[in-house]
């Protein structure tokens, strides 16, 4: 499984300096993305799911510091500490971003410049990263617009962002992300701002295009319905840590971590008959002072004393399925054994 990993991240930690102190947004996480797969990253707001991806792309705000043992993309290190100085790192990242690695943002309106035509915004990355002429770049833009299903692309290229609806704008963002046939697309909640019917269209589009172009996709979302209908593999993040990782079926059918189980218990499957919602009590941990042990301890039904003191080790269930929880420790059985497995 090592052979075709497109992105490999080891020991990634992200801190933010704020007025109140240091926020430990991401704490020592490791993950990998394989060629052509769709990886879902699920977590609450503040769990570090977006921050970890932004830091991989080198797009963090100035008050954030990233440390990692290894960030490798397409066989090349993109870990800032492997470069001497900010400039050489930035130079590499500029050749990577929008080229072999691209991003789809949550709010298309903040990403598109309202005073420039769609055509210009779409051809710009093509002109930057290739030697194509303006005319060829325009032809490519028309091709992309057709690909994402925008009718009469030639005329629409000369229009401004405000002349498009929300769903259409998101399609343009996707077209921009696809402009260079990237090997990896990072999609940060691309459908949260959209209505369900449009969301369905956009998800189908991402799925279809990823298959067609062989691009891997990292799908950052909080919506388990979206994850289930799109992703091959899922990382569950909580309190700056990856608490469980597995294939879609492993996560949905045999979840191990109490947080994953909790998440599944508090969503509704509209096709099933009524079951009571079992919410997870409390609120996520404040990452100004993250707990020493498991981040989920204060909301966990079966928490033990050890959970408050030490981060649980990872238990491996299969090649793909791993979870970090003390309940998997043999001694948990010997304790009060109050929890039901």
């Amino acid at each position: 499984m090592e052979q075709n990993e497109i992105l490999k991240v080891n020991g990634l930690t992200v801190d933010f300096a704020t007025e109140q102190g240091t926020v430990h947004a991401v704490r020592d996480i490791s993950f990998a993305v394989r060629e052509g797969e769709i990886l879902g990253v699920v977590g609450e707001s503040g769990s570090g799911k977006s921050v970890s991806m932004y830091s991989v792309m080198g797009l963090l705000a100035d008050n954030g510091t990233v440390t990692a043992e290894k960030i490798e993309f397409d066989g090349q290190s993109i870990n800032a500490s492997d470069y001497d100085g900010k400039r050489s790192y930035e130079k590499t990242m500029q050749s990577v971003r929008g080229n072999t690695m691209s991003m789809i943002f949550q709010d298309p309106m903040t990403f598109l410049n309202p005073t420039i035509t769609i055509g210009k915004q779409l051809t710009e990355p093509i002109l930057n990263h290739t030697k194509l002429t303006k005319g060829q770049a325009r032809a490519r833009a028309v091709e992309l617009m057709t690909l994402v299903g925008i009718p009469s692309p030639e005329t629409r290229l000369d229009q401004y962002p405000f002349e498009f609806s929300g769903g259409m704008r998101q399609r343009i963002i996707i077209a921009m992300a696809l402009a260079m046939s990237p090997k990896l697309i990072i999609a940060d909640e691309p459908t949260t701002a959209l209505d369900v019917t449009i969301q369905a269209q956009v998800l189908d589009l991402i799925k279809e295009l990823s298959k067609k172009m062989g691009s891997a996709v990292i799908m950052i979302t909080h919506d388990l319905g979206v994850v289930a209908s799109l992703c091959d593999r899922i990382n569950i993040m909580y309190g700056g840590k990856i608490v469980e990782t597995g294939t879609d079926k492993e996560i949905f059918y045999t979840p191990n971590h109490p947080y994953t189980k909790g998440l599944l218990a508090c969503i509704k499957n509209p096709e099933e008959n009524d079951k009571d919602l079992v919410p997870i009590p409390g609120s996520p941990p404040d990452l100004l002072k993250p707990p020493a042990g498991c981040p989920f301890v204060d909301r966990c039904e079966s928490a033990m004393k050890i959970c408050k003191l030490k981060m649980p080790p990872e238990t491996v269930f299969s090649d793909t399925h791993k979870s970090a929880c003390w309940l998997n420790d043999a001694r948990a059985e010997k304790g009060v054994n109050a929890h039901a497995r």
Partner: peptide, 28 residues
Amino acid sequence: KLQDIEADDALFEKLEDSEKDSEFIAVE
């Protein structure tokens, strides 16, 4: 130190609800 404590099976007892603080606010 934690490694030593870890050997203590008592630590694998259930955490009382009163010991959890899930509405904790760190900001002053």
